[in-house]
Design a protein around this nucleic acid. Sequence first.
DNA 1: CTCTTGACCTGGAGCAGCTCCAGCCCGGTA
DNA 2: TACCGGGCTGGAGCTGCTCCAGGTCAAGAG
Lengths: 120, 120
Amino acid sequence: MRISEAAARSGLSIDTIRYYERTGLAPPAGRGADGQRRFSSENVEWLTLLASLRETRMPMKQMRRFAWLYQQGHASVAERKRMLLEHADHLERQRAALDRCAELLRYKLAKYDEIMGDGA
Amino acid sequence: MRISEAAARSGLSIDTIRYYERTGLAPPAGRGADGQRRFSSENVEWLTLLASLRETRMPMKQMRRFAWLYQQGHASVAERKRMLLEHADHLERQRAALDRCAELLRYKLAKYDEIMGDGA
DNA sequence: CTCTTGACCTGGAGCAGCTCCAGCCCGGTA
DNA sequence: TACCGGGCTGGAGCTGCTCCAGGTCAAGAG
C-alpha cells in the first residue's frame, strides 16, 4: 500500500512516517516502479507499534535502539523484552500522573462551582 | 521562598519556571531587595497546577489563555471551568491510549516469551 | 495528444517546549 | 580578602515533529 494508507492505518501522519524513516526509526520502505514508497502489512504493524510507544512518550533515542535491536533478529529478544517491561513501568507512572491531575481538576472544579453559586 | 525551593515543591525545573514566567504562563514573581525572585505559596500552587496540566499535555497556548483568564478574576470562572472540563476529557483519552499501549506490550511480551522458550 | 489533477517525492525551514550555558552579581563564611 | 553557592540574563541548542516550495509521475478529461 501507499504512504497515505499506511498513515491512516498506523495513526501516524505522512510527514511523521517519512521522518521516522529518515531518522532510522522505521526501516526504509520498499519502492514501486514509480519510485514511491510501498508498505507491507508488517511495515504498518511496526509503524503502529511506534505510534503507540510515541503516544506514551518513549523517547526517540530508545525507540531507535529498539528498532536497531529488532533488526538484529532473535538474539536481541531478551533486551527488547527488558525495554518493553521498562516502558510498561512508565505507563504506570503516567497513569498515576493522570490520576493526580484528575484529582486536582475535581478540586478546582468544585471550587469554581462554589464561586459561581450552586445554580450555575 | 526562592526559586530552588519553588522548583522542588512544584516539580518544575528552575529553568522551566523562568521560562514560564517569560512566556506569560506564570505571573512575574516578586523580587527581594537582592533582585532575586521570591515565591509565595499561592505562586507555588499555581506552578504546581501548571506542572500537572503540562504533564498531561495541555498545550502552552491553552495554558497561557487559562493564565490570562485567571488574572481577569471571578468573571472568567465559567470559561476556566469549561477549559478544565475539556482537559478532563483529554485525560480520559490519554488513559485509553495507555490502556491500548499496555495491551500491545502484553501481546509483544507474550510473543517474546514464546520465542525465548518458557524457561527464559 | 495535451492538459489538468492528485498523490507522492526531496530538502530545508519553522515551531513548541524546554534545557543548557557563559558570564555576571550578591551575600555569607574562613 | 578570597571564595563559594545560588541567583540573574540573554541566547544557543535540542527533540520531535510539521509545513512548505518546487518538482515528478500516472491517470483521466477534452
